[in-house]
Design a protein around this nucleic acid. Structure first.
Lengths: 209, 209
DNA sequence: TTTCGATATATCATATCGATATATCTTGTC
DNA sequence: GACAAGATATATCGATATGATATATCGAAA
């Protein structure tokens, strides 16, 4: 989960821990509280698995900074993690699903559509469940629980509407692609190149120079 | 967090682990995946703290069932946990906030209003942040991330609207109460008595009879 | 008949959170 | 110029949560 996010962020450019945290917070902050207590251990795990490497150690200013870079092995791992959709929690868990969605640009269109439809089905099922259970809930709930319950349903419906839009877009795209008119969509023109604001890679010394 | 939920559920009636899990899933399932791996340890912690006690051990059918009951100490602890709003995460964390809301009936009206307003303020602040960051995000995001981002904003706005309703209700209630016309609201007529469906406490033998 | 799903309790490895520690650099302010 | 405050940066630790798994019994369907 965190590892997927880290690898996805490091695909953009090499970063050190603090920067990585800021980047991930910016990217996924709305759906996730990323803490150092999990980030650093995760980085170490990834390093042990050769998925990332310590690219540079910048000593000039402030404290040492260890700049991490994704390796080819890491790229491969990213792809696997991203497309690993065997477990149902990949659909069920709203955070996991959103994380994947944030990296949809790296995913096969067919898999994208499949995931979206799976998720839609799951949410629709849940909504139906809730509507069914609603009657028994009426009797035993106070107004607060009832309100919470109704609000959840509303959020669910909003989620479903949103997924419907995404699915429609994806279908349209696939249809056009099949017709051989592979016109690229907004946001994908650059392929995998997602460059950031003015920050260039600062002067750095190779780790074992 | 889990302990608050357990105590709140056991206030209704004594339950054994499996039943407790079903009850909590029914009550809070939409916002939480409760697993045995956390439930049983939590029950043991609570028992060690004398907040719950093993009321009965039913042996008749199937496997042993250990029925837990909340103690006076547990009631006190529940109140403390419920009203413990020092940490900002009690406002920030959407699950924690929702959990508290599910137990609003046990909370002082003034605290209820205060919590709702705090939460509303936090969400409004976040929404503003997002709107501000939106511009820089436009440039570097693909359509999926952008969609995710916009959808989040929509959900935020929906949350705020909902809170506004709750706040208005709470204000009205407090105003009426001040005018000395303490008319009880829907769902509160029964005070703390929240009885469940037909299930009576099954034949059980005291633990050390 | 036996297989499956529900009931019921429990443990384990792994992961995560939140708090805390440490230290330096930058910026503002008196 | 002094000095506090806040951002930068890495790291660890305890408490807790998750997901998987193990065990075992019961009722019902196939």
């Amino acid at each position: 989960m965190l590892e997927l996010a880290i690898l996805g962020a490091l695909k953009e450019k090499p970063m050190h821990g603090y920067e990585l945290k800021k980047r991930l917070s910016f990217l996924l902050g709305h759906l996730w509280k990323i803490s150092f207590g999990s980030l650093y251990p995760a980085l170490k795990r990834l390093e042990a698995k050769d998925a990332v490497e310590r690219a540079y150690t910048v000593k000039e200013k402030a404290r040492n900074r260890y700049v991490y870079r994704i390796t080819p092995k890491g790229e491969e791992m990213f792809r696997q993690l991203l497309e690993e959709t065997g477990k149902s929690s990949e659909i069920t868990d709203s955070d996991k699903f959103s994380l994947r969605l944030a990296f949809f640009q790296y995913m096969e269109p067919e898999l994208r559509l499949w995931l979206l439809e799976k998720r839609r089905g799951y949410l629709a099922e849940k909504l139906e469940e809730m509507a069914g259970a609603g009657k028994s809930r009426y009797k035993e709930s106070d107004s607060y629980r009832l309100g919470l319950y109704r609000h959840r349903q509303e959020l669910l419906r909003s989620d479903i509407r949103w997924l419907d839009e995404l699915i429609e877009q994806e279908r349209k795209y696939l249809l056009e692609k099949e017709r051989g008119r592979g016109s690229p969509r907004k946001g994908e023109k650059g392929g995998e190149k997602l460059l950031l604001d003015g920050e260039s890679l600062e002067k750095a010394t190779p780790i074992q120079a």
